[in-house]
Design a protein around this nucleic acid. Structure first.
Lengths: 162, 162
DNA sequence: ACTCTTTACTTGACTGGTCAAGTCATGACC
DNA sequence: GGTCATGACTTGACCAGTCAAGTAAAGAGT
């Protein structure tokens, strides 16, 4: 929680830490996408959508709720949903309870895709991340990530946009 | 370093850790880009290019070397270089020593941009990351990040592509 | 009941990335 | 010294994301 200087430049250990993290920020999403794309034909983002739906009651969520789960803008989600619809992995219908909402519903085919993609994805996360760390480091990583996420949220009251 | 089960699915603490990290993976690059875009008109990636050049002798690097520093594919770098050239922040010329190489040279204007952008960027990195962590956590984050990066590199002998 | 605002998307125009195919200089080999 | 492979980019076609503008259903106020 310290920072003797607000620092006009990153140097020394700070720079080391930051550039190590920046490398992960750059590589890990790509590595995840590649595995999922290769083995299941989905991006990590799309997998997240399918997974959230598969865990939801009736395998159904309102688009805006799904966007929240996926940290996604509505417009990004809308485009992704079109793609998934084309593959017959999900369907959209207006919410009968309130026609402004749109319900995204995972199809049986979509469910199968999630089920098939999950083990490979879990094993990649293990191989690239969890298995590399000691138990203590895993705990630390969780806490560190939460602190960073909270700082981002608080900074300018951020939420995923438009 | 353990992992009692190769795990067909992420659960419990593993899931908690992973989803905390995944949130950071999603939000932090966006937050960084927004600050740099707003205050200096560059993306985080472009800033990295300019910064690397500004630190190089003669403010000059071969494209392929720069791509290495930036963890970038050559084609991504090539497009980014075109954009930066249009803003007169850098110039490209064939390497006189070997015409297959292209030298990227930071202009004076480009140098000014880096210098002006650096404090704001450093302060964002502090605010969102470093200042949130204890000294011990900073050390852990560095080690954790390195382990993950190494695992990605080793996995399928990966390097940033085409 | 009719305008007016708000909410929940969707979509057109544009930007930035990828992948595969080019281009062009160079060093090798016969 | 002409062909051939290689290395270092660049570029065209395409895809995914953003931002801003558009649409359409609900509810609010009068």
């Amino acid at each position: 929680m310290q920072s003797p200087n607000g620092a006009a430049e990153l140097t020394g250990d700070d720079l080391e830490t930051w550039s190590a993290l920046a490398t992960v920020l750059e590589w890990l999403p790509t590595a995840l996408d590649q595995q999922l794309q290769r083995d299941a034909g989905v991006t990590h983002f799309e997998y997240g959508l399918l997974y959230a739906l598969s865990a939801a009651p009736e395998r159904t969520l309102r688009m805006s709720v799904l966007a929240g789960y996926a940290n996604s803008s509505l417009s990004r989600l809308s485009r992704a949903a079109s793609r998934l619809e084309k593959k017959h992995w999900l369907e959209r219908t207006p919410d009968p309870a309130d026609g402004r909402y749109t319900l995204a519903i995972l199809t049986d085919l979509g469910q199968r895709t999630v089920v098939e993609a999950t083990p490979g994805h879990a094993s990649t996360v293990h191989r690239l991340v969890l298995d590399q760390l000691t138990k203590a480091q895993t705990v630390q990583l969780r806490e560190i990530s939460r602190r960073i996420a909270r700082a981002i949220q608080d900074d300018g009251g951020w939420r995923p946009g438009a």
